[in-house]
Computed example of a mutant assay.
Amino acid sequence: MKRARRKLGLASAAAWALACASGADLALARGGGDSIVLLGTSGGPIARPDRAGIATLLAIGGKSYLIDAGEGVVHQLGKAGMQAADVPTVFLTHLHDDHYAGLPALASFAYTTRAPKLAVFGPPGTNALGDGVKSVMMPSARIRMIENHLPHSPADFLGTQEFSAGVVFDDGTVRVSALANTHFHLPPLAGGQQEQSFSLKFEGHGHTIVFTGDTGPSADVTAFAKGADVLVAEMASLEDRAAVPPMVRSHMDAEHLSPLEVGKLAAGAGVRELVLTHVGTVTKTDLAVIRSVYAGHIVLGSDLARIAI
């Protein structure tokens, strides 16, 4: 069963994720309309007093989709009036720990509270990550299966599917496309696997929303986001860049977006609204730099902010 789920085709994967939707999931979207909920807006593997790890909930067409699952995502869902079991489908933009550190808790809590399934879609390496999450879940699950009469094991509950560039998901409500971006510049691993980071485009219910994920400047990402209603973009602010050691600044410049590059991306793509997330300390200077090249609406993301789309 585990291997069969890993090899699901696009149509069957979408049908499987569709079957996971819960009543609470539908109620969230219907109650608030189509929206983006910034569950966590922090960038990087560090603790911040005012930001949880990067995680964004897209509520569209009566369904909910989670993009990245940073540290603290279960706690943030609780603050938003939801539970782990209300999130049946997760997309990971890449496999840095700040983008998946909350996944074990999300999966384990959803399993324990009897969610039907959890579908996780991500880049190469996601299947191995899923195996690790299942291992983390097992000590509790062995007890819960007896104590709470849970009908299936973590292996039956959690399914993963790896994607590459192109259309990666279509459940009839949203169509999700992926584009490799410039967050990684790494040689292939032994065996030929290439670490990849992706930008994601969600199209459906009359909306187009693009998530940059972590990326450096990229003409391809600009073209990918062309005409989107909302661009949810990462940003390395001027203060964030200044705070890292000098040896890290070249990484910040090549593999993240400065305020100027964010503005150029939003302007070049002609997006209606720019939402900034995966940030640390953002000042008026950062926003002024963006505004110097981009005339659309800017939202500086904060944890639990809800943005109507």
Rank of each mutant, 00 (worst) to 15 (best):
G9S: 11
L10V: 15
A11D: 15
A19Q: 11
C20S: 15
D25I: 00
D25M: 10
G31I: 02
G32M: 12
G43W: 00
G44I: 02
R51D: 03
I67S: 04
A69N: 05
H75A: 13
L92Y: 08
L92N: 10
T93Q: 10
D98R: 00
A101K: 06
L103Y: 04
A110F: 01
Y111H: 05
L118C: 03
A119S: 13
T126G: 01
L129A: 01
L129P: 05
L129N: 02
D131M: 04
V136P: 04
A141W: 01
A141M: 01
R142T: 14
R144P: 04
N148L: 15
N148E: 14
P151N: 07
S153D: 15
S153Y: 06
A155S: 12
G159A: 06
G159E: 02
T160N: 05
T160P: 07
V168P: 02
D170M: 03
H185G: 11
L186I: 10
L186E: 13
Q193F: 01
Q193C: 03
Q194R: 15
E203F: 02
H205R: 11
G213C: 07
T215A: 03
P217M: 05
A219R: 12
T222M: 11
K226M: 08
E255A: 13
H256F: 10
P259Y: 04
L265W: 01
A267V: 03
R272K: 15
T283A: 00
K284S: 12
L287Q: 05
A295H: 09
V299I: 10
G301D: 06
A305C: 05
